[in-house]
Nucleic acid binder design. Structure first.
Lengths: 182, 182
DNA sequence: CGATTGTTTGATGAAAGTCAAGTACCGTGG
DNA sequence: CCACGGTACTTGACTTTCATCAAACAATCG
């Protein structure tokens, strides 16, 4: 656990290594993953401005991360104008992905949600050079319950959809390794 | 229409009067409402930093709005430090509501989604003094298809749920006026 | 006044959830 | 080395929720 729900933090964590997830927990203990965090990601851009992390941030693999003091970042923004530009890029990206997720959950089928989740992750890993070969292959540490919590589905249904994807030759997925065949 | 999908804007619109919605349109022409915009709301905080409005912004009632040039806002941020604080508040609020919507769409039933949508709107209108009386009553210009597009449901199902809410004495809703009974 | 557009209701269907049983795959400690 | 308990995954039977389709009606607007 990198941040707990209602903790106050005077520091902003940034992922250096490994995968993590930002998670909302409901009263009935079901969960919704709001975003996956990959190396280079700021845990949440809202932490740049307020100390309250509104949701749980949990490691999926082993994670290395590093924290920056908010007070220092705040002064740095004013002394170093390029920094604000950088933060605004991060925040635009964060909001864009949140909006995409809203559309996925509101208007797409289980198959579409899972396919898009996988493809989005692959795209982000490609940018980071964390993939191999052609057709593209990569380490894929997510459990099916992570996929379920990110797509608003049940683990059982995720299993069925992934089996279907395998049967129709779209992906190869086993032993924490994923290949995109089509 | 206040902003079109892929237009560039050197100005940031702020709603002065009336209701609007920020909408993502899919290839099959179904829609997902990302947020409702009420008087005082910035259309999108990402517009403060990039000219591309990623989604359609449509008026629901007649709307008055006013625009601020981005270039002027940008310099104002540096000459007037309190302004950055204000923008960050708006950003945090915007992201918080987006995250809540993700949870609603991912993990809640139709009844819950609609109830929460209505209650969130009532809460925001209360803050603005746009309600009357006790039990609280207010102008409610949304069509059932707006509710459907915001909750990821069909208009038909929204009608059924609202009828059920009426039958069980939770709300009174007719002629664009809503009363929260329970 | 007819023509849209919005709402209600019921019958039927499809998508995803729930439940349950079985298998595979660890890591631990004897 | 093996037995064990726990977690993850798979599969099938059955249920629930919501979508789809259709028809009727109400409201709104030139």
């Amino acid at each position: 656990i990198i941040c707990r729900d209602e903790d106050l933090h005077d520091a902003v964590p940034v992922i250096c290594d490994g995968w993590a997830a930002s998670i909302a927990t409901l009263s009935d203990s079901s969960r919704q993953i709001l975003s996956f965090l990959l190396p280079g990601d700021i845990v949440s851009t809202t932490l740049l401005f307020e100390p309250r992390g509104r949701h749980l941030v949990e490691a999926i693999t082993d994670v290395r991360y590093r924290v920056f003091r908010r007070s220092e970042l705040k002064t740095a923004v004013f002394t170093h104008p390029g920094l604000l530009e950088k933060f605004s890029k991060a925040w635009i990206e964060e909001k864009y992905r949140a909006d995409q997720l809203i559309v996925d959950l509101g208007r797409r089928t289980a198959d579409e949600r899972i396919a898009r989740l996988v493809l989005n992750l692959v795209e982000r890993l490609l940018k980071r050079g964390m993939t191999r070969g052609e057709p593209v292959e990569l380490d894929f540490p997510l459990r099916q319950r992570h996929i379920a919590d990110a797509t608003g589905l049940t683990p059982v249904h995720v299993s069925k959809v992934l089996s279907e994807f395998r049967r129709s030759g779209l992906i190869k997925l086993s032993e924490r390794s994923l290949t995109i065949l089509d």
